[in-house]
Design a binder for these strands. Sequence first.
DNA 1: GTGAAAGCGCTAACAT
DNA 2: ATGTTAGCGCTTTCAC
Lengths: 350, 350
Amino acid sequence: MARVTLADVARRAGVSLASTSRALNGQVASAATVERVRRAADELGYIPDASARSLRLRRTGQLAFAVADIGNPVYVEMMREIESVVAAEGYRLVISRTGDADGTLDLVRDLNRGYVDGLILSPLWVTPALVHALEESTVPTVVIGRLPEGTRVDTVLADSEGGVALAVDHLVRTGARSIAFINGPVDTTPGRFRQLGFREATAGRPDLTTGEFHAEDFTIEAGYAAAKAVFTAEPTQTWDAVVAVNDLVGIGTLHAAHECGVVVPDELSVIGIDNTALADVCHPGLTSVDLGSTRRGQKAARLLLARMEDGELPTRAVRVAPSLQERGSTTAHAGAADQGQRGGAAGRAR
Amino acid sequence: MARVTLADVARRAGVSLASTSRALNGQVASAATVERVRRAADELGYIPDASARSLRLRRTGQLAFAVADIGNPVYVEMMREIESVVAAEGYRLVISRTGDADGTLDLVRDLNRGYVDGLILSPLWVTPALVHALEESTVPTVVIGRLPEGTRVDTVLADSEGGVALAVDHLVRTGARSIAFINGPVDTTPGRFRQLGFREATAGRPDLTTGEFHAEDFTIEAGYAAAKAVFTAEPTQTWDAVVAVNDLVGIGTLHAAHECGVVVPDELSVIGIDNTALADVCHPGLTSVDLGSTRRGQKAARLLLARMEDGELPTRAVRVAPSLQERGSTTAHAGAADQGQRGGAAGRAR
DNA sequence: GTGAAAGCGCTAACAT
DNA sequence: ATGTTAGCGCTTTCAC
């Protein structure tokens, strides 16, 4: 059967096109009209056409959440939260995968064609071209992550530096003196700022030995490979603790430690970042810095809705505070920090 | 600045609306016209409007992949594969979360409004209402998963029964005689058919002791909880092996075993299903049945493209064969199956 | 090769 | 409260 349009419904109900539209959309219309139109629409199996409606209304009722890697649970958490906020306002949420830096740029440009009414973007790579595209973009956008100072785009920020500081402080307080930071790719925003955080947190502390390493990706596999390299490096360096750039890399680190016979937390403490569900379920449980992914999702959604409401609003940057969730991969407080070096061949390879 | 439309470009280029459209879309047009239109469009920063174009063309260039739970890596794998296939044909892929059974139904109905040109759906719950909605739907759809016999919808099927049989056979061959099946919710399609597979594979084998248990969800957490209950149940039952409904539940099982002091694989073998990246990275590695998620994704994408090409094509059901990927969570072949019962307090709780 | 004009399906003035 | 009509931005006959 051919497409059923509003005109068909109008004809069947015996009223005008306008009345039909009004009746269906809850505008002014007599009860009788509403009733007849409703029935006609039901009988015909009428389904409004999204394109026609969007063209007329200049809105689609859809919002997009775009991330580089849906495989990371932290994005899944954000997504759930965003969806629940925007669904309450009648919006449908679609997820887009941005892929690499070019893909992100393409996506932002493409959305200007009007596929969606708004965008929440959590980019891994922030290039000048992307910043430019974001500022030029006509679709209301909120970025979860750091943008260059002065960029005229709403953002919600995790406090990466503060979060890493929390991790380092906890490790130092529980007796760690040599701390390795296993970062992800440093050309990404999280990579850069978490690295910055690690450097700030360990700067001016001659009592600490530190090292920086890189996983090739923010994944369990890459974290495992990087940690294994750390534990088997020559010349042998003894690490008391590892700060991992995220939980996935942290879990990879746990596995590598296990495989190298390094006992966590007795010989090595490990802290992840993001406090995802995975941290709760691995063994030992992964102590993790909570950067507030659900709160970030929630705030991003609210910011976007506000921006769509009023495009003239001044640009806002909302910060979410970090917190530390202790689990089994770090030792409980060892008392005073001056207790000194932890015992034995802590974290020594083999 | 106001929206730039095709009319603006036409005016600036000094040619008609029609010629402008043709020039931009690679239709017949003189080189000179193309050149002038191109430049005008560039200068004006023209971006075609998706809604208007869709309304006219009756196509959006978008395809949807809808799943209940993006958190499961198996869907992420499918997604990547689907995207790579459809992107090659010029389609953009959007991901939708269906949520529960009602949500799935709503989504299928909603897509008839024309948001997308096609849909790949991997439903957890298949209700009569959903089947009906799928058959009535005007948008070309491919379902990944089992539909009732005779449903006129293209499907791509994993061989759940065959896959579970592979797992059971492997366990039996390596000496297991008491096998627990930790299923997910049995009101779901995977839950039902993997259960069926387990029953078929163990039927008529009086030498085997079997048990069925249920995780409340297809997640690590739920698997952990379910396995823990299994290992600490009274009266105490000794299990040689666990078949988990998927890798997530399998990993939860590994954790529970570890926590209960059950050594894998010495005292207990564990097999997961889906063979996701997680199986490769946990300790011990999780032996897993590969149901061919990437191949399913690929086939679903091809089926959908074919269906969109020709709506009159007869309904097809494509099957993907399972295979077993051995890892550390099961013992290597114990030789002949008649070696008999495995030693000691295998898998005994506490 | 190009232009004029129709129309995709819908909503919102505006007039009644 | 209802009907008439214009028009959202685009593509595509159909004449020339």
